[in-house]
Nucleic acid binder design. Sequence first.
DNA 1: TCTGGGGTCCTCTGGCCC
DNA 2: TCTGGGGCCAGAGGACCC
Length: 383
Amino acid sequence: MAIDGADPAPKRVIAHLDCDAFYASVELLRRPELRGKAVIVAGSGPRAVVTTASYEARKFGVGSAMPASRALRLCPHAIVLPPDFEAYRATSRAVWELVGARIERLQHIGLDEAYADLTGVEKPLRVLRELIARVQQETGIVVSVGVGPSRLVAKICSDLEKPAGFVAMGREDAARRFAGAPPGRLPGIGPKTAERLRAMGVETIGALQAAAPELLEARFGPRHGRELIARAHFHDDSEVETSRVLKSRSNERTFDVDVASLEELEAILRRLARELCDGLQARAKRGRTIGIKVRLDDWTNVTRARSIEGHTNDVEVVTGIALELLRAYAPPRPVRLLGVRVAAFEDDPDAQRAPRRPVAPGLGEQLELPFGADLATASMSVQ
DNA sequence: TCTGGGGTCCTCTGGCCC
DNA sequence: TCTGGGGCCAGAGGACCC
């Protein structure tokens, strides 16, 4: 509320910029002969999943994070390409350099999307329209845009009219417009929470808006309960964070065939730890919590961690602790996935930082994270 | 149908200390 | 000496996201 003589706080203008089918688009730019065809970007191996798919492939029901084997059953004529993260990073850099040159306050979320704070910018919608036209002209990447008073509204708007969508909405409009949509449509409400809500008879965002706070707080805890109601009303005062600090780094591998032998698991763990420490040393990061992650063949996930005195990125130390944790757990069933993690970072002032080009101005560590060293079989959902 | 990899954040629990 | 409560922290697991 404005006090006499004081200016009211400027109305927030937040945009969410989301590149349409980003990885598939990069592939189609490189191979124009594939335009109009069903293209799937997926890893190799029996347990690969779809990273992304062109809109032609999506018409057959192919979606991100779907097993590649299933995607090919749905769309047998699809052309499958292996992910090429170097190319995606390069295009991402080009896109966000253009955007960053015009909009100062940007928060990058992965390679293909970002929030922008245009509060105080004159004619923000016009700025955005000109910007995405320029991005398309210079990089070939089509960007969908959502604009609202918060990240929450902007995010849900950018998804509304994809591809090449441009939707602006106020908070109350959003609360009205999405009242009939399922709660899972809201960012932050995943399948598990949606199912728990459904079990309570809450099947729409409107029903969530009208739900008794005491009931939700009793079911989900005071904090999460209040958060759910706030989201349903599209209340969100979270800031666009222009820099974020890396908190942990991990390296994990799903095996083509489950591994039961402890010896074999130990050998794999040594390799994972070495790769992880190489990455930590290159980024001058040291952590004091070392952990392992084990996924059994029945999909049970087990994590074990130990914190040490001081911080390390020494491969001998990390490997030693990871092996101790693995031996102490002694997986009771064949193992499907094994991973190692280092967390609780402290910057390492002594280590030489390897020369790395930033992914985009102001991007810091964040965008580098999902696309580490060996990603020949890796994939990532985008939409 | 059979589910990747790499992150963040939150909640719950148990140990430790005062 | 024993007990209980509160605060803090670490560990484990879960949910969610791209």
